[in-house]
Amino acid sequence: MSHAKPRDLLVILRRGPHGSSQLREGLDTALVAAAFGRTVTLLFMGEGVTALVADQKAGPLGQKGTAATLEMLEMYDIDRLLVEASALEQFGLGEEDLMLEATAVSQASIALEPASHRLVLVF
């Protein structure tokens, strides 16, 4: 999946919505970059695919949860969402379980993504 013009930022999200602040901070970074007019791709990998599961609530530890942030992505023009196909399968998830439309991608095409972005940040 190559692009003629490299996009600015690839944010790779590898953690689920609860248990650490990684997912929230990764999404915050993506929103900030988009607010500054940067083109952003989000890639949900491994446990990170569970971020997209629909109907999530805030966590019992007082976390705000990340569903509300995910709903804001469209407003920030972050519309290129990729999700690791094999991770969806591993977690028993189908596209109908996800709260946002994301493109399921193979590991082979994931391997091509970093080269088509100017900056890659992993959370």
Binding site: V32, R38, R118, L119
Partner: peptide
């Protein structure tokens, strides 16, 4: 802010 991180990264 985090915007600075994006800036220096690019």
């Amino acid at each position: 802010g985090l915007g600075q991180l994006i800036d220096i990264g690019l």
